[in-house]
C-alpha cells in the first residue's frame, strides 16, 4: 500500500498500460497521453478513495475510462456528430418484403490468419472508415475496445436502442464490404 501511494511509481508501473488502453479507444497519441495525465492527476487527488479492494491498476483504469468517456462526449457534442440515425442503409441490403438483396456467403477463413495479413488489415480499415462517423465510433468502442454498452451510451449520448440500431447497421455494412473486397466465401 505504501509503495502504491507513490505517484511516480504509478506512472512508471502503469503509465504505458494506461496509455495503450487510451490509445485503443482514441486512436490519437497526443489525446491518449493527455487522458493518462488527467487520469493520474485525478487519481492522485482522490487517492484516499482507493481502498485496495481492487488492484491499483483496475482502479486507475476505471478513472481513465471516465476521462475518456467525458472526452468523447464533449467531442461529439462540439462537433455535432449526428450523422447516424438519419440515413437508414438497411433498405440497400433488403427488399421491401425483408429478403436479402446482397446475399451473404459463408466465410471459411481463419480469423487469426486474416488479422496477421497486413493487406486484410488495410481492407478492414478502409471498410471501417466508410461507416458514418458516429456509427464507427460506437462500433469501435464496442468491438475494438470491448467497452460496456452502458459506458458507450453515456459517451455517445445515445439510448441502448440507438446503440443496437447503430451496431446492426455497422455489422451489415462491414459484412458486405468485407465480402466484396476480401472474403469470397461460398454460397450454400
Amino acid at each position: 500500500m505504501i509503495e502504491a501511494m507513490n505517484a511516480e511509481s504509478w506512472l512508471n508501473e502503469h503509465g504505458d498500460y494506461l496509455y495503450r488502453f487510451a490509445l485503443s479507444r482514441l486512436h490519437d497519441e497526443d489525446i491518449a497521453a493527455d487522458m493518462v495525465q488527467e487520469a493520474l492527476l485525478a487519481a492522485w487527488r482522490g487517492k484516499e478513495r482507493f481502498k485496495g479492494e481492487s488492484s491499483l491498476r483496475t482502479w486507475l483504469v476505471s478513472i481513465l475510462k471516465h476521462k475518456i468517456i467525458d472526452h468523447i462526449r464533449k467531442e461529439i457534442r462540439q462537433r455535432k456528430i449526428n450523422d447516424a440515425l438519419e440515413n437508414d442503409p438497411s433498405s440497400q441490403f433488403f427488399s421491401k418484403s425483408g429478403e436479402w438483396e446482397m446475399n451473404p456467403r459463408t466465410w471459411y477463413d481463419d480469423p487469426e490468419k486474416c488479422c496477421d495479413d497486413l493487406k486484410f488489415r488495410l481492407v478492414l480499415k478502409e471498410c471501417l472508415s466508410r461507416l458514418p462517423e458516429k456509427q464507427r465510433r460506437v462500433f469501435e468502442l464496442r468491438e475494438l475496445s470491448g467497452d460496456d454498452t452502458e459506458d458507450i451510451c453515456k459517451a455517445c449520448d445515445i439510448t441502448s436502442t440507438n446503440l443496437h440500431v447503430l451496431m446492426y447497421r455497422a455489422r451489415l455494412s462491414l459484412q458486405t464490404c468485407l465480402q466484396k473486397h476480401w472474403f469470397r466465401g461460398s454460397s450454400t
Binding site: N103, W107, P111, E112, C115, E143, L144, G146
Partner: peptide, 17 residues
C-alpha cells in the same frame, strides 16, 4: 451464413483488441 460471418467478424475484432 450471415450469422457465421458476423461471428467471425467478432472473433477478428477480439483478436485485434
Amino acid at each position: 451464413s450471415y450469422a457465421q460471418n458476423i461471428n467471425m467478424m467478432h472473433d477478428i475484432f477480439s483478436y485485434i483488441r
